[in-house]
Amino acid sequence: MSSAVAPDPSRVTTPVDRGVIDLLGLLAYAELVSFFRLASDAELAPTLADKAELAAFAATEQAHHQVLRRKLVELGVDPEEAMQPFIAPLDAWHAHTTPQTWLESLVKAYVGDGIAADFYRQVAEVTDPEIRELVVDVLSEEGRAEFIAAKVKQAVAEEPTLAGRLALWARRLVGEALSQAQRVALDRPQLAELLAKGDSSEERNGDLAAVSRIFARLTESHNARLQAMGLAG
C-alpha cells in the first residue's frame, strides 16, 4: 500500500507559507517547461554528442520537477494547483522569446535560465534551511552552463559576425525575463513579500519597490554571462 501524503490545502495558513508554496510551484513549472525546451533543443543539435548532452540536461530538469512535486505533496499541497498561477506568465515569456536558431536556443537556455535561477535563489534566501537547500539543489546545472558557454564561444570565434546578433538577443531575453518576473511579483503578493525580505537596502518603500531594486541587481551577472559566451563588447 502506498504511504504517500495526500494534499491538504488547509495546512497552508500563513502568508509566508503561501509565499513558499508559490516559490515551489513556480519553480516546479519552470523545471517542467525547461525539460520540454531542452529536449526540443536536443533535436536541433548539429551532432550526436551535442544531442546526447542536451538530452541528459533535459532528463535532469525532469528529475528536479519530480522532486519539487513530491515536496509540494509533502507540504499538503496539490502540485497542479501550486503551478497553475505561473503557467500564463512563463508561457508568455517563452512565446515572446522563441529562438530562430540552435545558437539562439543555447543563449536563451544560458541567459534566460540564469537570471531566473538568480531570482529563485534570491527568494529562497529568506526561507527555512530545508526549503533553501531544496531550491539550491534543483537549480544545480551540473555542467550545463559550461557546455553552452563553450559551444556559443566556439561558434562566435569561427564566425565573429554572430556576436552582435547574439548579444542583442541576450539583452532582449533579459528584458523579457524581468518583465515577466515583475508581473509574477505583482500578481503574487506573498511571493513578492518573500523577495522583499531579501532586500538589503535601507529604503523600505514597500514590497514592490524592494522587488524592483532586487530585479535591477539581478542584471549585474548578465555581463559575466555574456563574457563567458564571448559576446561581451
Rank of each mutant, 00 (worst) to 15 (best):
R11E: 05
V12K: 10
V12Q: 10
T14L: 05
P15N: 09
V16K: 04
V16D: 12
D17P: 05
D17K: 02
R18P: 13
G19V: 00
V20L: 03
I21V: 14
I21G: 00
I21N: 04
D22R: 01
L23M: 12
L23H: 06
L23E: 14
L24A: 05
L24R: 00
L24I: 06
G25R: 05
G25C: 13
L26G: 10
L27V: 13
A28Q: 01
Y29M: 06
Y29F: 11
Y29H: 12
A30D: 15
E31G: 01
E31D: 09
E31M: 02
E31A: 04
L32H: 09
V33M: 10
S34M: 03
S34L: 07
F35P: 00
F35W: 09
F35G: 00
F35A: 01
F36C: 04
F36N: 01
F36H: 05
R37V: 10
R37C: 08
R37N: 15
R37I: 05
L38A: 07
L38Y: 06
A39W: 01
S40Y: 09
S40P: 09
D41K: 02
D41V: 05
A42D: 05
E43F: 15
L44Q: 10
A45W: 10
A45R: 02
A45H: 06
P46I: 04
P46E: 12
T47S: 15
T47E: 15
L48G: 14
L48K: 11
L48E: 15
L48T: 14
A49S: 07
A49G: 13
A49K: 03
D50S: 07
K51M: 02
A52H: 12
A52I: 04
A52P: 06
A52K: 00
E53K: 03
L54M: 12
A55Y: 05
A55V: 03
A55S: 08
A55Q: 06
A55F: 02
A56L: 08
A58M: 00
T60A: 04
E61M: 00
Q62G: 03
Q62D: 01
Q62C: 00
A63N: 11
A63Q: 15
H64T: 00
H64K: 02
H64Y: 08
H65A: 08
H65M: 06
H65F: 11
Q66Y: 11
Q66F: 12
V67Q: 15
V67D: 13
V67L: 13
V67A: 08
L68G: 01
L68V: 08
R69A: 05
R70V: 09
R70W: 12
R70K: 14
R70M: 15
K71F: 07
L72W: 02
V73R: 12
V73D: 14
E74L: 01
L75F: 09
G76L: 04
G76T: 11
G76D: 12
V77T: 07
P79L: 00
E80H: 07
E81K: 03
M83F: 06
Q84A: 14
P85H: 06
P85F: 01
P85E: 10
F86I: 12
F86E: 08
I87M: 13
A88P: 05
A88G: 05
A88I: 08
A88T: 13
P89F: 01
L90M: 08
L90A: 04
A92C: 10
A92F: 07
H94A: 13
A95I: 09
H96S: 15
H96V: 05
T98S: 12
T98E: 13
T98D: 07
T98L: 13
P99Q: 03
P99M: 06
T101G: 04
T101K: 03
L103G: 04
L103S: 06
L103P: 09
